[in-house]
């Protein structure tokens, strides 16, 4: 008798297109969880299995569960919370010292301390000696650091015809025929005819 009932239930279940659709969705969800397992995303697998079970037990899914699901993803898989923390910290810093923040914003040439120390020294040398163009020694021309030099020192430009060279202290011998104009801790400005 029980087997007959079960058989009837299964037959009725598969005759309903709605149920078939649901079954297809559940299978797809299970397949998705499985693929995530093989991709090595254990966190997502746990999440999908939890979701699948909730969906099977409780249909229609209560809006609170949906809310919880979304919150979990937003909290763990996006940087939204970190952003909120960072924004909060920045706002608190500004509130604590509005004068300093405003002074930075509304004064010329502020913020140059973000440049690498050597670029700051180069800038100082070029400004102190009123130089309008320059060349870099091989040591400074190589690598990505040249981008910081070019943009940091702009509008003073690198020109291949310039007689002013920015070199490091250990390159002095290579520029022995040039006149030493000025220097800082790491950088030397020379004039080569």
């Amino acid at each position: 008798m029980k087997i007959k009932k079960l058989k009837n239930y299964i037959t009725n279940y598969f005759q309903s297109s709605d149920n078939l659709k649901q079954l297809a969705h559940f299978s797809l969800l299970g397949f998705w969880g499985l693929s995530q397992f093989f991709l090595g995303n254990k966190y997502f697998v746990i999440f999908i299995v939890f979701f699948l079970l909730t969906l099977i037990i409780s249909r229609p899914l209560p809006s609170r569960i949906v809310t919880l699901l979304f919150l979990v993803i937003v909290f763990f898989a996006t940087p939204a919370i970190d952003t909120l923390m960072e924004v909060k910290q920045s706002d608190l810093n500004t509130i604590n010292d509005p004068g300093g923040a405003l002074s930075n914003i509304l004064s010329p040439d502020t913020g140059r301390e973000v440049l690498p120390s050597q670029v700051q020294q180069m800038l100082k040398l070029l400004h102190r000696n009123n130089i309008s163009n320059y060349q870099l020694s091989n040591q400074y021309e190589e690598g990505l650091g040249i981008q910081r030099i070019i943009e940091g020192i702009w509008p003073i430009k690198i020109e291949p015809i310039s007689s002013y060279f920015i070199i490091s202290h250990n390159e002095i011998d290579d520029f022995s025929s040039c006149e030493r104009i000025d220097e800082t801790k790491d950088v030397v400005l020379v004039y080569c005819n």
């Binding site: 649901q22 969705h25 229609p60 899914l61 699901l69 993803i73 996006t78």
Partner: peptide, 19 residues
């Protein structure tokens, strides 16, 4: 795009389950 796809997938399945 994995995380956002998970979000979309789950919300889609919820929508489907709720007919």
């Amino acid at each position: 795009i994995e995380a956002s796809l998970i979000m979309l997938g789950l919300i889609y399945f919820t929508s489907a389950a709720n007919k």
